[in-house]
Design a protein around this nucleic acid. Structure first.
Length: 704
RNA sequence: GUCCCCGUAGCUCAGCUGGAUAGAGCGCGCGCCUCCUAAGCGCGAGGCCGACGGUUCAAAUCCGUCCGGGGACGCCA
């Protein structure tokens, strides 16, 4: 949806990359007659220190063999022919063959501090849909869900930073087994009516209550098989509607979704649309998708064998490798050599692998529903939801709400005047790695109905699970038997079924409590309310950065003590750096009456020796150069979908600043020009770090 | 059986489309608050980047084989 995009964006580093690449490419064409097709890609990186240069390229190495010339000589040729390029102060051929560039420092920083600079890269056209969170609405959210929403929300922020229009969806599985389980818990185990359940919801922490109840139900299934029959019946009731069980299920799902939204709001995570599975069912999205799949021959009715009577989709193994090469014809996909009969194998092993989409009893599987949903997301279904306002969201604690209400799908009625949803050019599904197989099937379905480009634009943003460290599992009262498999593993798996896990709100509460104690200790003059507000910001920083600082493919062995850390490589460390920087400017204003704008406006007449390394150190300039790389980092993050890169970048920048802070005073610096350039560099760095934190969904406290 | 992910310092992890001396945090040892907040800073110890082959001027990074750990492959979702 159209959230406020910053109209003006500070120029960062990428435009410099582009200019340099283009210039070097032109030089290669002139010097060696290498045109676009024959010239090597010009890789730019950062020399290990500023003495060597600000940017560098190993392009000479690449050319050495082809030109039968030493890398250093090639680098010297290019440097000699370089001429002048806006923003570049000097070019140097390093003895080892690197070609290095030195930037015009003063101009670089001034350009980045001026408010009206142009956006650095033009955004691609078309909307992106990001689906994340999607917690079963039957119990409280836990730390595993926090990883999903932290990743999902950061993705949203990063895409928006890049200028991409993003629609955020949260899928609600209100008609699934897990909700049915809790209904069984209330009705069978506890003998409750809908009214009594309402009463419980009013008087307890409902999502916590359901957390325990769900664990009891799943435990009871093992002893009392009759309960399973009750579950089947409940599931059937929910699907058909208009009965007590369906009403209870709807009530539970609605209440729990509200709980989840509150939890996520605490994390600075929100959505544009809640898509309810029940609406997909009732609006017969599947029937529509089924027609398309049948018409294209993507699914067929299996007549014999163990899958007789089912509608199935053939499974292809190498769809990831080359989506466009996939042809929806199972009979011809085998390369000739693999068709040679193998006497060792039996016929049924050679049989095409097939995924059941519609069961022999006529009921569609989860895959089928998801295919229909994915078609809708890409605007390929030819059908739409109705929409209702779920919550109004008039404003937040930080001021007026940045956008309109939170919408939800509905089956009938709804508002006639609603934003357009669905129909995106790109789709990102943030779902854990265990669902890779299903996500692959979605792509296959898209290819099979003749939309390979839809498959290419559907991204499964997969990530590994959050497990518990043994120490934390013990704290929660779970110790695996000494010789069991569980005890030998490096971590303990979270289990909603067993009720084993750290609830999201519990984690936030304890973090807020300990952050609050620290804030109070350091800032006794603050009111309790202000102190608590700051504690919340710090807690969020701790959790969100913890959840994104590991790469996606890594299992997080969640350790309470580690996640509790406000020191070292943590979100609060980054916040602290920004708070310190802000503090400097507050005092500069108070003591010297020097405000940021006045300071910056006067800069052009101040000698820039400090920035140029007149003191023999390039530390100040290094801060500026590093700070300018945020856009490059964002590009890398989007390309790799690896947010640890962002977390590491922000941390390293904060680290550089902290070191500088100790070495180079600003308030007490007596040389005016030195003082001013230090201040200017720190303003820029502070701005960039604040934006980086914002991309992580983290606010900057006024004090810490 | 097939496929996917992971294997880097005592521990937890970064290292992006190959590039200049392999990094960080925690932990450990020693220092630093009459000086913009010590949630901080400095110094130190600590690594045959799972193994072996290959590609390359250049491999932790790419390819292959193997070893070790995790996961997926259901008329569940």
């Amino acid at each position: 949806m159209c959230r406020r995009q910053p109209r003006k964006r500070t120029t960062l580093i990428l435009p410099v990359h582009d200019r340099l690449r283009a210039h070097v490419a032109r030089l290669l064409a002139t010097l060696y007659s290498l045109d676009d097709s024959s010239a090597p890609a010009i890789v730019l990186d950062y020399p290990p220190n500023r003495e060597l240069g600000d940017l560098g390229t190993p392009v000479a190495f690449e050319l050495a063999r082809r030109l039968r010339k030493a890398p250093r000589a090639i680098a010297q040729d290019i440097a000699g022919a370089f001429g002048s390029l806006d923003g570049i102060r000097q070019v140097a051929a390093a003895p080892n063959g690197y070609l290095n560039f030195f930037l015009e420092r003063r101009e670089f920083l001034l350009a980045r501090l001026s408010p009206g600079a142009a956006a650095s890269v033009k955004p691609p056209a078309g909307k992106a849909i990001v689906e994340h969170t999607a917690i079963n609405p039957n119990k409280a959210a836990h730390i595993g869900h926090l990883r999903n929403s932290a990743l999902g929300d950061t993705l949203v922020r990063v895409l928006r930073f890049r200028g991409i229009t993003v629609e955020v969806q949260n899928y609600i599985d209100d008609t699934g087994v897990q909700v049915a389980d809790v209904v069984v818990g209330f009705r069978v185990l506890e003998g409750k009516t809908l009214d009594q359940i309402r009463e419980i919801a009013e008087t307890t922490r409902f999502d916590y209550y359901c957390w325990d109840l769900y664990a009891r139900v799943t435990e009871s299934y093992e002893q009392d098989k009759a309960l399973l029959a009750a579950r089947a019946e409940t599931l059937h009731d929910i699907e058909h509607g208009d009965n007590e069980n369906a009403a209870i299920a709807a009530f539970i799902a609605d209440r729990i979704v509200h709980c989840h939204l509150e939890t996520m709001a605490r994390m600075n995570v929100d959505y544009d649309l809640l898509t309810w599975e029940g609406d997909i069912l009732r609006l017969k999205f599947w029937a529509q998708a089924f027609e398309v799949l049948k018409a294209k021959g993507a699914v067929y009715l299996q007549k014999e064998g163990r899958l007789a009577g089912c509608w199935v989709m053939p499974i292809q193994d190498d769809v990831e490798a080359n989506p466009k090469a996939q042809i929806p014809n199972p009979k011809s996909k085998e390369p000739p050599e693999s068709r040679i009969p193998n006497p060792e194998s039996r016929d049924d092993e050679e049989e095409e692998r097939e995924k059941v989409i519609v069961r022999s009893n006529g009921v569609v599987t989860y895959v089928g529903k998801d295919i229909a949903y994915q078609f809708w997301k890409l605007g390929l279904l030819g059908k739409d939801f109705h929409y209702r306002v779920f919550t109004a969201r008039p404003s937040t604690s930080l001021g007026p709400g940045p956008h309109g209400p939170l919408w939800a799908t509905c089956t009938t009625g709804g508002e006639s005047d609603h934003p357009m949803f669905g129909g995106a050019a790109y789709v990102y599904n943030v779902i854990d790695v265990r669902q890779s197989y299903l996500q692959k099937l979605l792509k296959q379905a898209l290819i099979a109905v003749g939309h390979p480009e839809g498959a290419e634009r559907s991204h499964h943003f997969s990530y590994e699970m959050v497990a518990l460290s043994h120490a934390t599992a013990r704290e929660l009262g779970y110790a695996p038997p000494p010789d069991s498999e569980d005890a030998k593993r490096p971590f303990v798996e979270v289990s909603g079924r067993k009720g084993l896990g750290v609830k999201a709100d519990d984690l936030l509460d304890t973090l807020i409590r300990s952050a609050g104690a620290e804030v109070g200790k350091r800032n006794p003059e603050l009111s309790d309310e202000e102190s608590r507000r700051i504690a919340r910001m710090i807690a969020i920083a701790a959790v969100r950065s913890f959840m994104i600082k590991f790469s996606r493919g890594k299992v997080i062995a969640f350790d309470l003590e580690e996640a509790h850390s406000f020191e070292g490589e943590s979100g609060p460390y980054i916040q602290y750096a920004v708070v310190r920087a802000n503090n400097i400017f507050q005092k500069l204003q108070q003591r010297d009456g020097l405000n940021e704008n006045v300071l910056l406006n006067a800069l052009k007449d101040v000698p820039a020796g400090e920035l140029d390394g007149a003191n023999g150190s390039h530390e100040l300039w290094s801060l500026v150069l590093d700070a300018s790389r945020l856009d490059e980092i964002v590009e890398q993050v989007i390309r790799s979908l690896e947010f640890s890169v962002l977390a590491k970048y922000a941390f390293a920048l904060a680290q550089s600043f902290n070191a500088f802070y100790h070495r180079a005073p600003i308030l007490n610096e007596e040389r005016d020009d030195v003082k001013r350039w230090r201040a200017a560099a720190v303003i820029y760095l502070r701005n960039q770090l604040t934006r980086a934190l914002d991309l992580m969904g983290v606010d900057v406290p006024p004090r810490m």
